[in-house]
């Protein structure tokens, strides 16, 4: 976990409007900035690092700048200021050819509205990325078939996108991105256009794929439960700026401000928080021979053990006692 980050973003700005450089570094509010300079800062001074193999979620409401942010990462939108270090090299400094090579081999993106080519069948859509980088016909079809099997679309090779359901279309989009075997997968709200059941299915699909292929992923969403479900770490954006960054339980357990607090207020905390968040130090007179549980166990999964135990449950990591949990803490947490 301690190796060099795959992607290291430092002080990234994207300003739309006339003479956008002027607005870089400004601390004015969005409204004031618009009035003074006519510019809109869609991304302001965002920094973060994505570790290898991690699912990094960027979350925010619409207009928060998250989609702009992810497009800046591959320069589909040209950033105004900052650094985007990908494996240590700044993407912003890449010339056009180098950038194209990066996009063809190392980065791939999945889009909210799929962006499939309606005049090509599924197989040709999936093979498209390989085709434009010059792979031979046999080779790219072989690879495309492999990836289609991976996403569960075997048998639909010759269908056309508009003959497929939304969920299946997005599987094609996913397959297209996977086909080029990228080092980093970017997802721009890939499932927001799908209905809830399909969305859940697709989320599980991503979890499965992540387990199987182990790609590093940056995942954009406006859906908190999706963020909590998929993200190893979550970055919350508001008005273009970073509000909080942390693991799901950090975000829910220790909101950085009222905005985030409001956001996470509906989340069933017991589903996210771990014992670490409710344990307390053992009182001197308490018996310390109760059941042992891991501090990273989600509360929901500990409820049965804790409530059925007649003495405090010990939270132990590597043989060291970190604290105890009793039914009082659990009930208080659930009631809140």
């Amino acid at each position: 976990m301690k190796d060099q980050p795959v992607l290291d973003v430092r002080g990234l700005w994207k300003v739309f409007g006339p003479k956008p450089e002027r607005a870089v570094g400004s601390t004015l509010s969005r409204q004031e900035l618009k009035e003074r300079t006519g510019c809109v800062a869609a991304v302001r001074d965002v920094s973060f690092a994505v570790r290898p193999g991690e699912v990094f979620v960027v979350m925010g409401l619409s207009g928060s700048g998250k989609s702009t942010l992810v497009r800046c990462l591959t320069r589909l939108i040209e950033p105004t200021a900052g650094e985007i270090l990908f494996d240590g090299a700044d993407i912003r400094k890449a010339d056009e050819r180098h950038l194209r090579e990066l996009r063809r081999h190392r980065l791939a993106m999945v889009f909210q509205h799929f962006g499939l080519l309606p005049h090509r069948c599924v197989l040709d859509n999936v093979a498209y990325g390989l085709e434009i980088r010059g792979s031979g016909r046999a080779e790219r079809y072989k690879r495309a078939r492999e990836v289609l099997e991976l996403v569960g679309l075997t048998g639909f090779e010759n269908s056309y996108p508009d003959q497929l359901s939304g969920g299946m279309q997005q599987r094609v989009g996913l397959a297209r991105a996977l086909a080029v075997d990228p080092d980093l997968l970017l997802f721009d709200e890939p499932f927001s256009a799908l209905d809830p059941l399909i969305r859940r299915e697709m989320q599980n699909e991503v979890i499965r794929l992540h387990r199987e292929v182990g790609k590093t992923m940056v995942f954009i969403t406006h859906d908190l439960s999706e963020a909590l479900k998929l993200g190893d770490r979550i970055l919350i954006m508001r008005d273009g700026a970073l509000v909080q960054m942390g693991t799901p339980d950090e975000v829910v357990g220790a909101p950085a401000d009222d905005y985030v607090r409001d956001f996470v207020s509906d989340v069933p905390r017991s589903h996210v928080l771990t014992l670490r968040w409710v344990m307390r130090d053992a009182l001197p007179e308490e018996p310390l021979d109760g059941p042992e549980l891991d501090p990273d166990l989600v509360i929901r999964d500990a409820v049965r053990v804790v409530l059925s135990a007649d003495r405090p449950v010990r939270v132990v990591r590597d043989g060291e006692l970190l604290g105890v949990v009793t039914s009082a803490e659990i009930l208080e947490m659930i009631a809140r």
């Binding site: 497009r71 589909l76 996009r103 980065l107 993106m109 889009f111 962006g115 309606p118 498209y128 434009i132």
Partner: peptide
């Protein structure tokens, strides 16, 4: 032509 599709194509490194 749908900008989404064009963007997808660009993101894959199309000239």
């Amino acid at each position: 032509v749908s900008p989404v599709t064009l963007e997808a194509s660009a993101s894959l490194g199309a000239t």
